[in-house]
Design a protein around this nucleic acid. Structure first.
Lengths: 142, 142
DNA sequence: GATGAAACCTAACCTTT
DNA sequence: AAAGGTTAGGTTTCATC
């Protein structure tokens, strides 16, 4: 992973369908040399996948919340993972330091749908209580 | 935005470089009909961009934290935005309901770099104090 | 949904360090 | 060897019908 790799990733992040020749021109390589580096990074799993950034509002996920989870007793991370995976509105989650046991990001169509998703989280065994921060206005998305 | 659009988006999310013919085969459309729909969604800004999902650890952003921001007095959202935008480690942020004024997601190479980024957040005028939850293990990424 | 020209991808081969 | 350049042929895109 050198500076050229990083430059290629920056280009791909902005437009992952740009021709290799165009990316190569930006980073100072030929099209095939660029492709070879991209192929290597895909094989490496440095690049996990080629994807799209979709407007959340356009597909019914306009309401978002950061949720702290407090569990009863001790819970195995993989248990927690299994349980959160069953709730599609949970788009991100991790165990954390601090008071809470875990933090999750929930996305739903609206307030009601978000509330229902939160109920599903709380209904799950071993979750004692939650503390939510509903996003009012998005300031940064990078 | 109908079910076919949603199906196309699901395909693009998994592999945004798949040929239109392949996506069309999955959703029951010809290559050109598929392309027309994708072009419309790009024009719509339903699809914001074609991008890549990169392993954070591979490019020096392996340490992550959810940070609650508590401000002094009242602060205009756009002020907060301007200030957080200046800190590249802040990858996400929004004003929220609840005790905190805002929540942000920070990503840095390691603990030290995260701490430095946090200091930058706290040093910014009008930020009274912060409350961080450092991610120990990532459970879900969707 | 189909067609054809232009652009692009891809893999093999060659050159350089 | 390892990394980049070049070329040729097959595939994909894209505008038009």
């Amino acid at each position: 992973m050198d500076d050229i790799d990083r430059a290629i990733i920056a280009e791909l992040r902005a437009d992952s369908r740009a021709p290799y020749a165009a990316i190569g021109a930006e980073v100072g390589l030929s099209a095939s040399a660029t492709k070879r580096r991209v192929d290597r990074m895909v094989a490496d799993r440095t690049i996990r996948r080629f994807t799209v950034d979709v407007d959340p509002a356009a597909e019914g996920a306009g309401t978002e919340a950061y949720v702290e989870l407090f569990c009863r007793g001790t819970i195995a991370p993989h248990e927690l993972r299994r349980m959160l995976l069953a709730i599609p509105e949970v788009v991100e989650a991790g165990t954390v330091t601090g008071e809470a046991d875990a933090v999750g990001v929930l996305r739903a169509a609206g307030d009601q749908e978000l509330e229902q998703a939160l109920e599903k989280v709380r209904a799950a065994g071993s979750v004692d209580h939650t503390k939510s921060s509903v996003v009012l206005s998005r300031l940064i998305t990078r």
